[in-house]
Amino acid sequence: MVNYKFVHDKERCIRCGGCFAACKQQNGVPEDISRINIVTIDEGKSGERHITMTCMHCNDPPCVRACPVKGISKREDGIVINDKDKCIGCEYCSWACPFGAPKYPDTGPAELRGIMDKCTFCVIPYEQTDEYGTSILRAPNPKCAGFCATKARLGGDASEITATYNERVAGRLVERQIGV
């Protein structure tokens, strides 16, 4: 059973912004919000690191429990998606979410202003239906991870990406022992 997840490798992220631009383009996200935020910690100081913040597709998502209109759901493959038709824009999910993932745009199509938008693992773009009203559903193939310049952002089945990540961590730990 697949369980889609993201892993962020802060020892690789260099804040190139590739994930940001890839996401904007792939999902047509309006100007004033972004499904992915890059936060820099200790800028200009020793230990400076960059963290990308998106929906982490939690195993037990607090937003799903919090949403008063059952507008957020977790799919069988682990992806947490939101239904913009149901959303009332109460912003309660943003309080429940420990990652600050839900966003509420003030620009873009008028009928979607104030309606929650967040990462959908690239399954659903910003406008969830096409011009014929058909729901859009795509393969779980997150562009932020695919385009990540240094492969700091890993997206995919949890078992696979954690294996990759663990390998890197192990490599770094070994290096510390044998290093000068």
């Binding site: 190139c16 912004g17 590739g18 383009q25 695919g146 385009f147 990540c148 310049a149």
Partner: peptide
């Protein structure tokens, strides 16, 4: 690049 691109590259179409 194994698929990796920075913000400039991903904005090429744009």
């Amino acid at each position: 690049n194994l698929g990796g691109m920075c913000s400039k590259g991903t904005a090429l179409a744009n």
